[in-house]
């Protein structure tokens, strides 16, 4: 169990950290270029936005795993520790269901009109596909690729909530034992 949680934590942290690093690097280099050489790339705005949305989805799951989300604790503070932990385990199940439903919602959203072009990424996507010869890379320029972030975020949240649930349950059992 511990190793599974640790693996998930690392995976979520990797996704979140990678997106943060890329977003910083693209924006920094692109603005430096604009103010020095006077040129910037056409995908310099759209791509960091989409990367951030993916990053938020990984960060959301990571934060869930580490109990970092902002929650309203005034009522739950009155409960005894053991009752509260059981309540939070139930909350994990609600979060799991929310994650699953969000994944469906995100899937429906992305497949609906996902093959439209992301205007700023269009030429970059075509260029990638042409230079590498891999046709599927044109998907870089399709909004659906990025819109799918919400569906993936829902799935990651469901995974995080499930793992948190089992972690809490085993902690409760350990106390009782």
């Amino acid at each position: 169990m511990k190793t599974v949680n640790e693996f998930a934590r690392r995976l979520f942290a990797l996704g979140a950290g990678l997106s943060m690093a890329l977003v910083f690097a693209i924006i920094f280099v692109n603005s430096l270029r604009r103010y020095t050489v006077g040129q910037s790339v056409s995908w310099g705005e759209e791509l960091p936005i989409y990367l951030t949305i993916y990053g938020v989805m990984f960060g959301l799951a990571l934060a869930y795993l580490q109990d970092r989300h902002i929650r309203f604790t005034v009522l739950t503070d009155f409960l005894s520790v053991s009752v509260r932990e059981k309540l939070f385990a139930a909350v994990d199940l609600v979060s799991f269901a929310t994650g699953v439903a969000l994944a469906f919602s995100g899937h429906a959203f992305a497949v609906r009109r996902g093959n439209l072009d992301a205007s700023g990424l269009k030429s970059a996507g075509n260029w990638l596909a042409e230079t590498t010869g891999i046709d599927s890379l044109v998907w870089v320029a399709k909004v659906g690729t990025w819109q799918y972030a919400i569906a993936i975020g829902g799935a990651l949240l469901a995974v995080a909530a499930a793992l948190k649930f089992f972690e809490r349950i085993s902690a409760i059992k350990a106390v009782q034992a």
């Binding site: 979140a16 943060m20 960060g59 959301l60 580490q66 989300h69």
Partner: peptide, 11 residues
Amino acid sequence: LFSEAMRDSAV
């Protein structure tokens, strides 16, 4: 640092 920043922003 990068992953913690994105985690705290995600919230």
